[in-house]
């Protein structure tokens, strides 16, 4: 079995429609239950907005702390799942369900195989 990251691209600055958000929450919850029931789930969760992030950057032998996200882009990582799937087709089928549930684009990326 391969492992895939399903990364949700979110624009935190976009206006939110409460009813739509409620909808997405319910759908994501149902999706989570399904991936757990089918033993596809490895890990997953939603992230706080990028303003809450701190970047720890190596500098020489020490590090510096930077307040805020690593890259200033509109679409950022809003949450993710890590799943196991036989191949990309299986992973894409889960990603389709995930994207329709959370109403955001979902990027599918394979983990490096353990050699």
């Amino acid at each position: 079995m391969k492992q895939y990251l399903l990364a949700v691209h979110t624009d935190f600055s976009a206006p939110v429609d409460p009813a739509e958000m409620q909808d997405a929450f319910a759908a994501v919850e149902a999706f989570n239950k399904e991936v757990m029931d089918k033993n596809v789930w490895i890990f997953g969760g939603g992230l706080c907005p990028p303003a809450s992030s701190t970047v720890v950057r190596p500098e020489g032998k020490d590090v510096v702390h930077v307040d805020g996200p690593y890259a200033e882009t509109k679409e950022v990582l809003g949450g993710f799942w890590i799943i196991r799937a036989a191949d990309l087709d299986a992973a894409l089928a889960w990603a389709k369900k995930a994207a329709l549930a959370c109403k955001n684009p979902v990027e599918v990326r394979p983990f490096q195989d353990e050699e």
Binding site: K2, A85, A86, D87, L88, D89, A91, V108, P110, Q112
Partner: peptide, 14 residues
């Protein structure tokens, strides 16, 4: 290779 694109005929619905 990396993404695991399969080498098979897709399922009937696809």
């Amino acid at each position: 290779k990396q993404a695991g694109i399969p080498y098979r005929v897709p399922d009937i619905e696809e």
